[in-house]
């Protein structure tokens, strides 16, 4: 069900979370990608040639308040495939009320919303799912052993409504997430649930 998910980048200068997130986003409709200015300065601006879709609207917000406003405007619109918002640090504007508003709006319009926190700490939030994502060493490249292969992620679901938390090292291949290493049997069921 589309809702608000919060995603913490374990390391702010690690762009790995974007691959994890984009693997779960549909691209049939335009995408709204909001970045606040600090996030752009610290970890770069999105680069359309590297993204799965070119059909997107990018918003460069002055601060977290504008970014949250833009996200809320976008989430209310059912014509978007998803809204992704990146906020740097722990802005004051981002409180429980703000996240709760986003969550309710996302559930009402059916537009999934991803709130990405770079260099922030998890505090009270209305998000239905809270992830902590870091890059993991990539898979073996079949063509060149010394080159990076398919990306893998160390994803931890530390808070979720209606499902147990867990931690997996996963990769995305041929439209499916699959486990890479180091998880128990129970995790495999969970993993099936997240195959987009």
């Amino acid at each position: 069900m589309p809702t608000l998910s919060e995603l913490f980048a374990v390391h702010p200068r690690d762009g790995g979370w974007a691959g994890f997130l984009l693997a779960q986003v549909a691209t049939d409709k335009p995408l709204l990608w909001v970045q606040d200015r600090m996030a752009i300065r610290e970890s770069g601006r999105i680069h359309p040639p590297g993204l799965p879709t070119q059909n997107l609207i990018h918003v460069e917000a002055r601060d977290a308040r504008d970014a949250l406003w833009a996200m809320e405007e976008g989430v209310r619109c059912a014509c978007l495939s998803a809204v992704i918002g990146e906020l740097w640090g722990d802005p004051r504007a981002l409180d429980f009320t703000a996240t709760r508003r986003l969550a309710v709006a996302a559930e009402r319009s059916g537009t999934p919303c991803w709130l990405v926190r770079l260099g922030g700490n998890a505090s009270l939030s209305g998000a239905r799912m809270r992830w902590r994502v870091a890059s993991a060493p990539s898979l073996l490249n079949p063509l060149d052993v010394r080159a990076p292969g398919l990306p893998a992620w160390d994803a931890e679901l530390f808070r979720a409504r209606g499902m147990p938390p867990g931690r997996w090292i996963i990769a995305h291949e041929a439209d499916r997430f699959h486990l890479v290493a180091g998880a128990g049997d129970r995790a495999l069921d969970e993993d099936q649930r997240f195959t987009a």
Binding site: P49, I57, E73, G74
Partner: peptide
């Protein structure tokens, strides 16, 4: 319709945040 709704969203974003802040990719 989705198109009109999207255009209105772009309008609102642009009016509030400025023309340069709301962009679409161009190769």
């Amino acid at each position: 319709s989705g198109e009109r709704e999207l255009a209105r969203l772009v309008d609102r974003l642009t009016v509030k945040l400025g023309e340069r802040a709301v962009g679409r990719p161009r190769a």
